[in-house]
Design a protein around this nucleic acid. Structure first.
Length: 198
DNA sequence: AGCAAGATTAGC
DNA sequence: CTAATCTTGCTA
């Protein structure tokens, strides 16, 4: 199967279904003709205003506006003043939900990724961790609201066999840590997490 | 206008 | 385990 951009209808479904099918898809970013890409290995779901960990929990604000918009768009924001995190907006237009991309398996542009990551990192570590993969792919606030179905930032289906997905609690947050809304590529070494979760 | 908090990471 | 660092949103 040749590379194909994932259509908007893919994202207009229940978030956990999208999350399961997103593992194994390829996130691509092109800057000045240079392409970087990696297979999604780990991601977390943030669903609705009733999810205390979701940015939409306080209701609509200027910052989380993309979450309420149509599916298939990127929601990028700065966390802890240091790290950019990428989310994929899901569900129907008007319902706030998204999937945080936490780790990738580098496929293209490894040299460029290494250059962007100042601290030396082995190729397998280039895109491990939500804050690290945005640096490796060169994703910034400028990519907020980017259309993932068209443009320099997109998600492709390269025909990889859908991997088994392991569900675990979300990490790195301090509320609602018991919901098993973190999907990991079973047995893949590129999954983030500092301790036992690997 | 000022302040506290946060979906992280690296370093001791 | 804790510091670093800045945007957002709430309070005055």
């Amino acid at each position: 199967m040749k590379p194909r951009i994932v259509p908007r209808s893919f994202y207009a479904r229940p978030t956990l279904d999208v999350l399961r099918d997103l593992i194994g898809k390829v996130l691509v970013h092109e800057v000045r003709g240079r392409r970087t890409a990696g297979a999604i290995v780990e991601a977390e779901a943030y669903i609705g205003e009733s999810d205390p960990a979701c940015h939409a929990a306080p209701g609509p604000t200027r910052r989380n506006a993309p979450l309420y918009g149509p599916p298939g768009y990127a929601y990028v924001y700065l966390n802890y003043g240091i790290h950019h995190l990428v989310n994929v907006v899901t569900e129907s237009d008007g319902f706030p939900a998204a999937i945080l991309i936490r780790a990738l398996d580098p496929i293209e542009g490894l040299d460029l990724m290494a250059r962007r990551r100042r601290r030396g990192a082995r190729s397998a570590d280039l895109c491990r961790g939500p804050g690290n993969l945005t640096v490796a792919l060169g994703i910034t606030l400028a990519d907020n609201c980017a259309d993932l179905c068209e443009g320099p930032l997109r998600i492709e289906d390269r025909g990889l066999t859908p991997p088994d997905v392991a569900w675990t609690p979300r990490i790195g947050i301090r509320v609602a840590t018991k919901r098993p809304w973190r999907g990991c590529w079973t047995g893949h070494g590129g999954v983030s997490g500092r301790k036992s979760s690997r």
